[in-house]
Amino acid sequence: TLGIRQIECVRAILDRKIYEKNGVRIKRSQGYGTQTEKIEFDDIVKIAEENDISVFEARKMIEK
């Protein structure tokens, strides 16, 4: 059989707020029964370069 399946979906946009903690910007989003926090990637890269470490190590250091 030849054909195309088409599925429509709805995208929900969560409320976002950015706050600063210990000189690092953190993005918090929440809505629809969920809440997440994520460190701004640019801040992770900056700390990694300043300390001559990998981005992975910088993220671990910040999360402590």
Rank of each mutant, 00 (worst) to 15 (best):
I44G: 02
K38N: 12
D15R: 10
K21I: 14
D42V: 03
G31S: 01
R11Q: 08
K17E: 14
T1P: 11
I4H: 10
K27L: 05
F41N: 09
K64H: 06
Q35R: 13
T36L: 07
K38Q: 14
S29L: 04
V24C: 06
A12Q: 09
G23W: 10
Q30E: 05
I26H: 01
V55R: 09
K21G: 06
D52M: 07
I7Q: 10
R28M: 08
D15V: 04
I7N: 06
F56I: 11
K38T: 05
K21V: 15
V45R: 12
S29V: 09
V10Y: 08
M61T: 08
K17T: 14
K27H: 02
I13Q: 11
F41K: 14
G31V: 03
K21N: 12
K46L: 08
I39S: 03
A48W: 06
K38F: 00
K38H: 08
K64T: 09
N22D: 15
V55P: 05
Q6P: 00
R25D: 06
I39A: 09
I18S: 07
K17F: 06
Y19T: 13
K27W: 01
V24N: 07
A48P: 06
I18F: 12
G31K: 05
R59C: 04
A58Y: 05
R11G: 01
Q30K: 07
E63C: 04
E63L: 12
N22L: 12
R16C: 06
L14P: 03
I62Y: 02
G33I: 10
A58W: 03
F56K: 15
R5P: 01
N22Q: 15
Q6K: 12
M61V: 06
E63R: 12
N22H: 15
F56T: 13
E57A: 10
A58S: 15
